[in-house]
Write a protein that binds this DNA or RNA. Sequence first.
DNA 1: GAACTATTCACCACTTTTCCCCACTACTCC
DNA 2: GGAGTAGTGGGGAAAAGTGGTGAATAGTTC
Lengths: 145, 145
Amino acid sequence: MFRGQFKYSVDSKGRISIPAKLRRHVAPDANETFIMTKGTATCIDIYPLDQWQHIEEKLLKLNPFNPADAKFIRMISQFASEDTMDSQARILIPQPLIEYAKIEKEVLILGALKKIEVWNPKIYEEYINQTGESYEQIAAKVMTE
Amino acid sequence: MFRGQFKYSVDSKGRISIPAKLRRHVAPDANETFIMTKGTATCIDIYPLDQWQHIEEKLLKLNPFNPADAKFIRMISQFASEDTMDSQARILIPQPLIEYAKIEKEVLILGALKKIEVWNPKIYEEYINQTGESYEQIAAKVMTE
DNA sequence: GAACTATTCACCACTTTTCCCCACTACTCC
DNA sequence: GGAGTAGTGGGGAAAAGTGGTGAATAGTTC
């Protein structure tokens, strides 16, 4: 499980290092390979290959001849990109994702259980400060039982 | 499984390169051969031969004496065309499909799990912007379990 | 049936991008 | 304090994408 936050930079080629502390939690099955895709918020989701395969299994159960299902398959795979870490433990983020998540030089990397999220720090701050339920309120609702 | 998006061009002869990242996911069984046909949206569907064979099995189970089945069989077969990649990993798109998908110089190639889709970028944009459920909404619905 | 024309298809060549590897600095942990 | 690990940057070789030329095939006309 991935945990923690890290402030890293994206280099001129669009590469990001996977923090060493997160790297230790990547299963060997992942083969040092990650799938990046559009997050459901304004961020990039990064899944180790083994985790992504669980998502793909769900996608494969959809019916590609059903228009709504097909649209979702397109939307999610359009931004999905595979890459293997280089010898310096970096992966290359595709341009479309950088644009989508409004990534600039600095990024905030978050460990989020089964995936890793990459944010523009400013955007993350705005997201957290959005008026809405507080941490306590959400916790109370989500963590019942 | 095919994933990702690629902006490529069609040359004057109607040829399209299969992106290298997609090529890596084509099974050797496909023998570098693809079947192109009309997509269910305004696009061209490209199946590696081995995947197409699964589609054909399903078509064979339809009842050719049922008018709806028969019509679908005609429509999909009418546009189905086979081609093998040349030494530069390109395939030739038949004119009728180019016209159907309104393809011009620029194309958007999408990896869509078991098939590859080819779109006119403008048409794809219109399609995605069609009012409908958002990415977040669909994701929440489809990926629950 | 032969010759000419038109279209198709395989191969060659060039340019750009990608990706792999090497190097440097800073920080951490013995 | 020193060794090792982590993060950042860049250069060069290899591959990928695009365009075009020429041979082969097929089709048509005389």
